[in-house]
């Protein structure tokens, strides 16, 4: 038996399923890369509501308001906002520097929403709205950029794999 002939007759493994897998992964990564923008859009909508002082929501009943108690003083919320804003920006920059998977966008959205609510209940929302909006845009904008950057790199890796597979097909 001729060994050379035997080698040429061996069928190549079918790489189409692998190509499909890579393509699906690219699509998934493309979807994930836009999640930062979705959170940013959600925050903008929340801010529009806060700008109107949540007048579209029904007012809280007296009993619920009494149960919640009086809001904290505005100066304490301001202090907390400064600490939060600074920490969140440092945290995202650290994530970016270490090329870690971006996490915590919903958490940031929750924190910012809580700040809007605290200011609302302490009657300081009108004075401090733009401060929360600016810090929110910064944090979520930075996070969104990190998400886009991170997944864009993963997409590039997968695209290169796909090109290699296409070459094998040819």
């Amino acid at each position: 038996m001729d060994p050379i002939k035997h080698e040429t007759e061996d069928p190549l493994p079918d790489i189409n399923p692998l190509r499909e897998q890579v393509k699906t992964k690219i699509k998934k990564l493309e979807l994930l890369s836009s999640t930062g923008l979705w959170i940013l859009a959600l925050f903008t909508m929340l801010s529009m509501g806060a700008f109107r002082n949540f007048d579209f929501l029904p007012p809280l009943s007296d009993s619920l308001r009494a149960a919640l108690g009086t809001g904290p003083p505005v100066k304490y919320i301001n202090g907390a906002l400064v600490v939060y804003g600074f920490s969140a920006i440092i945290l995202i920059l650290t994530q970016m520097a270490s090329d870690k998977k971006p996490r915590g966008a919903l958490g940031h959205f929750g924190y910012l929403g809580a700040f809007y609510l605290f200011y609302h209940f302490s009657a300081g929302l009108a004075e401090n709205f733009w401060a929360i909006f600016a810090v929110g845009l910064t944090i979520l904008g930075l996070h969104s950029y990190h998400v886009w950057n991170y997944y864009h790199e993963r997409i590039q890796e997968q695209t290169e794999i796909l090109h290699e597979l296409d070459k094998l097909m040819d």
């Binding site: 301001n78 600074f86 920059l93 004075e127 401060a131 910064t138 904008g141 930075l142 950029y145």
Partner: peptide
């Protein structure tokens, strides 16, 4: 870009809060 976003955002935020104080 990250440096620009972080610095710009924090300076604007700081100024707004300082103005409010």
């Amino acid at each position: 870009v990250p440096v620009t976003i972080a610095v710009t955002g924090f300076v604007i935020f700081g100024c707004l809060l300082l103005y409010s104080f």
